[in-house]
Write a protein that binds this DNA or RNA. Structure first.
Lengths: 142, 142
DNA sequence: TTGTCCAGTTGTTTTTTGCAACCAGTCAAA
DNA sequence: TTTGACTGGTTGCAAAAAACAACTGGACAA
């Protein structure tokens, strides 16, 4: 019956990404162009393969990403963001921006954040559209 | 030496609030006017007292909130957001807004989010100022 | 001085995470 | 057609974190 602590907006979000790994996976797909299991496994933070499997499955269940077979390599899965996932972009950018000001972040990281902030709504819209195009493609090819 | 997984902006934020409880505590202070241990202990999500103690200490170490003695009740501690904490407001609002659209949230929650969104920058600035005034007061009275 | 409220602490159980080794299917080259 | 590297995982075990309940000593109000 009750599998969640409350129906508060903040808590409802935390039930999805209130852990140390989920947002890093979303980052990999949203900003770093990663689409395959091995690519995410090799990110800087060195996630364990069982945790990655678990989180990808949960994100799929939550409808935040979708898993499809790669057209050229039968064994590879392609992980793409759904609209629900793409809509997390403002959340991600605000988090990154806060970190750039208040936390210990690489120069490269700060520059990347600054570019997104300076790019404003237009850049964000452009990125959203690109991700949505990609989604349309994988949905068609299923 | 290396007590963090990486210096990526997203990860640096997650080292602070990448868990199931921290953002709920910040919510309690930022939006629900809670300032005392017992008030937070009695929130809907029913956090355990040892976890609450731990997270309040960590948030203080991170410089996101400050603990001061209540002037009228020697035993009570007052927890207030610092500027670093107040700066999380856009993050919180974007998370809440995403949840209002994509997750199972109470009508009350949705209305609350809508008010903040509709209020725009002016409302946010007003809330920021109120929190900063409060911070000034507790800093003076130490 | 008695009962209630205060911010925690302590000890135990349960759940989650981290780590390393392992696996079968796929693919490209020899 | 065999070999060897790569694919997305799985399994078993140890360590860490969280959940739960019971408890503590100081403070306050009646």
């Amino acid at each position: 019956m009750k599998n969640c602590k409350s129906y508060c907006p903040i808590n409802q979000a935390l039930e999805v990404f209130g852990d140390k790994w989920t947002l890093l996976i979303i980052r990999d797909i949203m900003f770093d162009g990663k689409r395959y299991f091995r690519e995410m496994l090799n990110s800087d933070e060195k996630i364990a393969s069982n945790i990655l499997t678990d989180r990808l499955n949960k994100l799929e269940q939550f409808g935040i990403l979708i898993k499809t077979k790669d057209a050229h390599h039968k064994q590879k899965n392609v992980y793409s963001l759904t609209e629900k996932g793409i809509d997390l972009m403002p959340v991600m950018l605000n988090i990154a921006n806060w970190s750039a000001h208040h936390r210990d972040v690489t120069e490269e990281g700060k520059i990347k954040v600054k570019n997104y902030v300076d790019g404003g709504k237009e850049l964000q819209d452009k990125m959203r559209k690109a991700l949505k195009e990609e989604l349309k493609l994988v949905l068609k090819d299923r």
